[in-house]
Nucleic acid binder design. Structure first.
Length: 463
RNA sequence: UCCUCGGUAGCUCAGCGGUAGAGCGGUCGGCUGUUAACCGAUUGGUCGUAGGUUCGAAUCCCACCCGGGGAGCCA
């Protein structure tokens, strides 16, 4: 007999085939003379209905053991189901119980649980319908990202997780050290002497692989990073994690328009791929989590993204028939309520806003003519806000040096970054995408802690 | 970090100065095709923690801890 996954059986299984299935019991319904058990092995949302007749050996012992959560192996014959919920089911000949799950203490019930509660049993929550679907979709997103870039000839590069420069100046950093924190070496002025630390200077967990991506793009033209990044910011929201995954493509010989084109093509590709690969899971989300996600996916795939400049966006907001909590004027950073208005109320689809004032954007973004704005872009998505942020990078050495000076960043740490402009510089552009926010966007899940298997947030790193 | 709402049975919640409640779950029994099965019975509590007010506190006051939502920061 062949061991098969539930997803395969539900899709391809034929009556009279003999199979073995291994998985976890989701629910058991006992009747007089026989029982129904639903077995799930993570391969699909739906489980396989197993019919256990009281005639099999040790029936009474076995049926007592297979409570919700128990792990079992069932051998038997596939048959057409007499019931209405499924086409095919497994008529058990033999049942092996690997591990019981005491019904009095096993925390997962057959009925719905709140996500808040499931976070307290993080090690078990992946066995639920919703989290199971989330992590299958998350996997599909990962595959889609690699496939998209590989098909286009991008090289996946591994940017370092430990860095010694805080170049972006974005948020708080986690320090990496092997000092004995109870006995820190001090220098003559009483400050911590980092020359004695592992790297001979302060080191941190990376907040972005972009600068290293630029290095590699100057050799391989088109590259992307896809890996974990870290922020020590004390952010307590449904959209922030201390450890999250980021996707950062970087393209040589590319301008802001090419960057926007890639971002739009990229999002469309991911949505198409997930819809084609996980239709059951997506329908589940559409039915139980957020009734708009199928329409949103359709909207993304079949419509062109709106593209406006920051200056135009400000004009629109100033003329909007709506009162904002934060007043609008040229020069402000767009607030959540402004982004929401543009993406959700006005365009009702993703909007790419470009050419922001240089004062509110990073030093490495290319200075536009007139020197008031930079070639930055943000993709604002309905329900999520900023999902992609990118820019054309400043490739002119003199301008970049000036910008570094203006923003007060320590230029010495960036000597290698400046060398890229000294030797064979080219126009180039890229963007960053928060991977978990993408998964949120696709699944409609409200809280970012529920789209990553082991969320890291302030005061939470138990599992 | 700020604003705001909350913490009562394993879960979801009601009770808001006078003997601690419901539904679900669990357990036991019934049922020959169930689908979050159904029917009957039953079980279950240091009311987040520590102070205070009061004859009496789950309920009012204070501090702290934890969680949700929103904001800031950002991805």
């Amino acid at each position: 007999m062949e061991t098969r996954r539930v997803a395969d059986i539900l899709k391809n299984g034929q009556p009279e085939e003999t199979v073995i299935v291994k998985g976890w019991v989701r629910t058991k319904r006992e009747l007089k003379g026989f029982s129904f058990t639903e077995v799930n092995d993570g391969s699909s949302l739906a489980g396989l209905q197993v019919v256990i007749d009281s005639g099999i050996s040790d029936y009474d012992t076995i049926i007592k053991k297979i409570n919700t959560g128990a792990s079992i192996e069932v051998g038997g014959k596939l048959v057409s189901s007499q019931g209405k919920g499924q086409k095919i089911e497994l008529q058990a000949d033999s049942v092996i119980v690997y591990g019981e799950a005491d019904a009095e203490t096993y925390p997962l019930q057959k009925k719905r649980h709140s996500f808040e509660f499931l976070r307290t049993i993080n090690h078990l929550r992946s066995r639920t319908n919703t989290l199971g679907a989330v992590f299958r979709v998350r996997n599909a997103c990962s595959v889609a990202i690699h496939q998209f870039f590989q098909e286009k000839g991008f090289m996946w590069i591994h940017s370092p997780i430990i860095t010694a420069s805080d170049c972006e100046g974005a948020g708080e950093l986690f320090t990496v050290t092997n000092f004995d924190l109870n006995n820190l070496p001090k220098n003559a002025t009483g400050e911590v002497d980092y020359s004695q630390d592992f790297f001979g200077k302060p080191a941190y967990l990376t907040v972005s692989g972009q600068l290293q991506a630029e290095v590699m793009a100057m050799a391989f033209q088109n590259v992307y990073t896809f890996g974990p990044t870290f922020r020590a910011e004390n952010s307590n929201t449904s959209r922030h994690l201390a450890e999250f995954w980021m996707v950062e493509p970087e393209m040589a010989f590319c301008d802001l328009e090419g960057d926007q084109n890639l971002a739009e093509e990229f999002l469309k590709y991911i949505f198409k791929y997930v819809l084609a690969t996980c239709p059951e899971d997506i329908e589940f989300f559409n039915k139980w989590i957020n009734k708009t996600i199928l329409a949103t996916a359709d909207n993304i795939i079949n419509n062109e993204f709106a593209r406006i400049t920051y200056t135009k966006a400000i004009e629109i907001l100033e003329g909007a028939d709506k009162k904002f909590q934060f007043p609008v004027e040229w020069g402000i950073d767009l607030q959540s309520e402004h982004e929401r208005y543009l993406a959700e109320e006005l365009f009702k689809k993703p909007v790419i806003v470009t050419n922001y004032p240089k004062e509110i954007k990073a030093f490495y973004m290319r200075l536009d003519e007139g020197e008031k704005t930079v070639s930055a872009m943000d993709v604002l998505a309905p329900g999520i806000g900023e999902i992609i942020g990118g820019s054309q990078r400043e490739e002119r050495l003199d301008v970049l040096e000036r910008r570094i000076q203006e923003t007060g960043i320590e230029a010495d740490d960036l000597w290698w970054y400046l060398d890229l402009r000294r030797y064979g510089t080219v126009p180039h552009a890229g963007f960053g995408l928060g991977f978990e926010r993408l998964v949120q966007f696709i699944t409609g899940m409200n809280n970012i802690r529920d789209v990553i298997p082991f969320p890291r947030t302030p005061l939470n790193a138990e599992f």
